[in-house]
Amino acid sequence: MKQFQYVKASSNAGVITAISKPGTKIIAGGTNLVDLMKRGVTAPDRLVDITHLPLKSINITGKGLHIGALALNSVVAENALVVEKHPLLAMALKAGASPQLRNMATVGGNMMQRTRCTYFYDTAMPCNKRAPGTGCGAIGGINRMHAIFGTSSKCIAVHPSDMCVALAALDATVIIAGPKGQRTLQFTEFHRLPGEHPELDNHLATGEMILSVEIPDNNFAKNSYYLKVRDRQSYAFALVSVAAALDIQNGVIRGARLAMGGVAHKPWRLFEVEKSLIGKKPTEENFAQAAQLAMQGAKAYEYNAFKLKLAPATIAEALKHASGLV
């Protein structure tokens, strides 16, 4: 690892000034950044430690549930408000990483974590995300873990987070601070698709930092489920994961929220499937039918064609769990 300068910021403004300078990165939990630095994937000249800033709170505001960017994944997963109001988020968090890593990782850091694509991590391999212009190792390579939605000729990596899948499903917003002040972004608009610039993971501009996320109130607490299918029972990234939330009243679906992980460069929200479920009864047949709608535009590569089958199966299964059929 390259030697770097380590500084602490005394305020958000300090952070923004610091990260406006090239070569500077924020460090919080460090679970992904330190790993990337060890592998030489990134080599910042300066790290700004923000862990002492007052961005850890989890509380109710007029807009819903507010979760500070520095709230730890383990703390959010166990928080009474989260468990009561948005159990989907708690389930997704617990499906991610390991207890140790969740004790270190923050909400903001989880959002900022980079793909686990093996070609991205190995500096001896081509990767447009790590080194633009070098090509995509995964296209034509070992792409079993890779995306089937929203890919480009430059990159087929997936975003690895579980938490983000739940937040995308729950209509969360992201509060961002930057040199020009604060702004708010829909969570589903926070991460990017790779397009021509896979080196960019999200829509944060230079000098911007995440302050918090907010989840609006909803009626999904009773009927939500996070289903993660992976190669082992725990401590593994998703082959496919589904965050499913239903508002069921008198045996009829009044509202639905669905997002998938492990299939795209960003959490993949399933608006069409959600729409199709409204007014339907929560039955196995309806779920299976709706799940098929999710697959429009899916494109498989040499080793990940199984996801075309696994994804709808997982959606249907997650909906069964959410609705109490399982």
């Binding site: 030697q3 770097f4 380590y6 500084v7 602490k8 910021a9 300090g14 610091a18 000249d45």
Partner: peptide, 20 residues
């Protein structure tokens, strides 16, 4: 120049410059 940062012990600028 980094007055907005808490001035904790920093890597000496000479060293940093060399690395950069």
């Amino acid at each position: 120049q980094s007055s907005l940062l808490t001035a904790v012990a920093l890597t000496p600028a000479t060293a940093l410059k060399a690395a950069e």
